[in-house]
Measured scan of single mutants.
Amino acid sequence: RLIESLSQMLSMGFSDEGGWLTRLLQTKNYDIGAALDTIQ
């Protein structure tokens, strides 16, 4: 599930440099909407 969510976020133009996006998705239970809300 992480790989699916991460690949979708990467395709939106986000980077996972340093693993920050992986950690964010894990804390949000791989919910892309919740991750995007946090980023904004």
Rank of each mutant, 00 (worst) to 15 (best):
L25A: 00
I3N: 13
E17Y: 10
D16L: 00
T27G: 11
D37S: 12
T38E: 15
G19M: 04
N29K: 08
D31V: 07
S7Q: 14
L36K: 02
S7M: 14
M12K: 08
G19S: 02
Q8E: 12
Q8K: 15
Q40K: 15
S7G: 12
I3Y: 13
F14K: 00
E17P: 06
E4Y: 07
L10H: 09
S11Q: 14
L24Y: 01
Q26L: 11
G33F: 12
S5I: 14
Q8G: 07
M9L: 13
E4Q: 12
G13L: 09
D31I: 07
I3L: 14
S11V: 12
Q8F: 11
T22P: 01
A34T: 07
G33R: 09
N29T: 01
S5E: 05
I3R: 14
M9C: 11
G13I: 09
S15W: 06
R23A: 13
L36R: 02
L10K: 11
I3G: 12
L25N: 01
W20S: 03
I3D: 12
Q40F: 14
S5R: 05
E4N: 10
F14I: 05
L24H: 03
G18A: 08
L10A: 11
Q8I: 15
A35R: 00
N29I: 08
N29G: 12
L36I: 10
D31A: 02
L25E: 02
L36S: 01
L25Y: 00
G19P: 01
M9K: 01
S15R: 06
F14H: 02
M9Q: 01
N29R: 05
E4L: 09
Q8V: 14
T38W: 15
R23V: 09
S15L: 10
S5Q: 09
G13Q: 03
E4R: 10
W20P: 00
K28S: 13
L25F: 01
L2V: 07
R1K: 14
G18S: 09
S15N: 14
I32A: 04
L6M: 07
L25W: 00
G18Q: 08
E4M: 09
L6K: 01
S7I: 12
M12L: 10
F14E: 06
L2I: 07
L10W: 00
F14D: 03
A35Q: 03
Q40H: 14
L21W: 01
M9H: 02
W20R: 02
T27I: 14
E17K: 06
T27Q: 15
I3E: 15
L21I: 06
E17T: 12
R1M: 12
S15A: 08
Y30S: 07
G13D: 02
M12F: 08
L2Q: 05
L21Y: 00
Q40L: 15
D37N: 11
K28F: 14
A34P: 02
I32V: 14
G13T: 02
R1H: 10
R1V: 09
R23S: 10
I32W: 09
S11W: 03
G19A: 03
Q8T: 12
L2Y: 09
K28G: 08
D16Y: 00
S7R: 15
A34F: 07
Q40P: 07
Q8P: 03
T22S: 11
Y30K: 05
L36G: 03
I32T: 06
N29D: 13
F14S: 01
S15T: 15
L25D: 02
G13E: 06
A34D: 09
D16R: 01
A35W: 08
D37M: 09
A34H: 05
S15C: 11
N29P: 02
L36N: 02
T38K: 08
R1A: 12
T38V: 14
G33W: 14
L10I: 15
G13N: 02
L25Q: 01
R23T: 10
I32M: 06
G19I: 01
E4F: 03
T27A: 15
F14W: 10
T38F: 15
A35V: 15
E17S: 09
E17V: 11
I3K: 14
L10E: 11
K28L: 15
T22D: 04
D31G: 01
T27W: 12
M9T: 00
T38Y: 15
T27L: 15
L6A: 00
Q40E: 11
L36Y: 06
L24F: 02
I3H: 13
Y30D: 05
M12V: 05
G33P: 11
S15M: 10
M9F: 07
Q26H: 12
T22G: 04
L36A: 04
N29M: 09
E17D: 12
R23G: 07
G33A: 15
L25M: 02
L21F: 05
L36F: 06
Q26I: 15
M9V: 03
W20A: 05
A35T: 12
A35F: 09
G19W: 04
L6G: 00
E17A: 09
A35D: 03
T38G: 07
D16T: 03
L24G: 00
W20Y: 08
G33V: 14
W20I: 04
G18Y: 08
Q40V: 13
T38D: 12
D37L: 11
S7E: 15
E4I: 11
L2E: 08
A35H: 03
A35N: 01
L21P: 00
L10T: 09
D31N: 07
T27K: 13
T27H: 11
E17Q: 09
T22Y: 01
K28Y: 13
I39L: 13
D37Y: 06
D16A: 03
N29V: 04
I3Q: 15
L25R: 00
I3W: 14
L2A: 08
S7Y: 11
Q26P: 01
I39Q: 03
D31L: 06
S5K: 08
Q26M: 11
G19H: 07
T27P: 02
G33K: 13
T22E: 07
G19Q: 05
S7L: 15
I3M: 13
T22W: 05
R1L: 13
D16M: 01
F14R: 00
D31R: 00
L25P: 01
A34R: 06
M9E: 03
R23C: 13
I32Y: 04
I39A: 04
Y30A: 08
S11D: 14
T27D: 15
G33Y: 13
S11T: 11
Y30P: 04
G18D: 12
I39D: 03
L25G: 02
K28Q: 11
S15G: 08
G19L: 06
I32E: 05
T22N: 04
Q26Y: 06
N29H: 10
S5P: 06
E4G: 09
S15Q: 11
L2R: 05
I3A: 14
L24A: 02
A34Y: 05
L6N: 00
L10M: 11
G19E: 07
T27V: 12
T38R: 06
L21H: 01
G18K: 06
G33Q: 15
G33T: 13
S11Y: 02
S15P: 03
L21E: 01
A34K: 09
M9G: 01
K28V: 15
I32Q: 04
L2S: 06
S5H: 04
G18H: 09
G18W: 08
L24I: 09
F14L: 07
L21Q: 00
Q40I: 13
S7D: 11
R23E: 12
R1T: 13
S5W: 10
T38I: 13
D31H: 05
L25T: 02
G13P: 01
I39S: 01
R1D: 11
T22R: 06
E4P: 07
E17H: 10
G13A: 04
S5N: 04
I32D: 03
N29W: 09
N29Y: 10
N29E: 10
E4K: 10
Q26D: 07
A34V: 08
D31Y: 04
E4A: 12
M12S: 04
G19R: 02
S11P: 04
D37K: 13
E17R: 05
S15D: 15
I3V: 13
M12W: 09
L6E: 00
R23F: 09
N29Q: 09
D37E: 15
E4D: 13
L10V: 12
Q40M: 15
D37F: 05
